[in-house]
């Protein structure tokens, strides 16, 4: 069998510029985990169903198991590690902790990044809408309620803060 074809790419990961030569068939989440040691993004299904691998690409929540590393060429990637260090989702993380919206924590990186998308431009949402928004992310441990509680509370906080800013 032929040696795997490789390609050289440049991208930004959590604000750091990176140049790498990667197999063209490699998935983004494998690159992050194996080549960069960013193991906060997880693999639950490698199938696009569970959301454990969710990362941000150019600000959009994306499944790292469905995107090839070479497709990230020239893009800006943010992972849970970067989002934690920048403090961008600190309020959400604090609420997850306070309400125990995680047990094993394996779904949590993806859950936070998916929820963060909803908090970017905060608008009043029902619990049902929040549940719908989170429904691409599987959690076997919590039963989801504490996650919904945490997101609802941060959403309310951000809406209130936004109203205060105006």
């Amino acid at each position: 069998m032929d040696a795997v074809t490789r390609a050289t790419i440049t991208l930004s990961v959590n604000g750091e510029p990176i140049a790498a030569t990667v197999p063209v068939r490699q998935h983004l989440v494998d690159f992050l985990r194996e080549d960069l040691g960013l193991t906060g993004s997880h693999l639950g299904c490698e199938h696009g169903v569970c959301g454990a691998c969710t990362v941000r690409v150019d600000g959009i929540a994306v499944r790292g198991c469905l995107m090839l590393t070479v497709q990230a060429d020239g893009r800006r990637i943010e992972t849970i590690e970067g989002l934690s260090e920048s403090g961008a989702i600190a309020d959400l993380q604090a609420e997850f902790v306070a309400r125990n919206a995680l047990q094993c924590g394996f779904c949590t990186s993806g859950m936070l990044i998916t929820a963060a998308a909803l908090l970017e431009r905060p608008r009043a949402m029902s619990r049902g809408e929040i549940r719908e928004h989170l429904s691409g992310n599987y959690c076997r441990c919590t039963g989801y309620q504490a996650i919904v509680d945490a997101v609802a509370s941060v959403l309310a906080g951000r809406i209130a803060a936004g109203a205060g800013d105006r």
Binding site: L38, T39, E81, S84, Q93, F96, L102, S109
Partner: peptide
């Protein structure tokens, strides 16, 4: 009370076996 380890897990600092 909240779990002391929860923030670590929620910050992508968990160390699962495959990590």
């Amino acid at each position: 009370v909240a779990r002391p380890s929860a923030l670590r897990l929620a910050s992508g600092r968990g160390r699962y076996t495959d990590d």
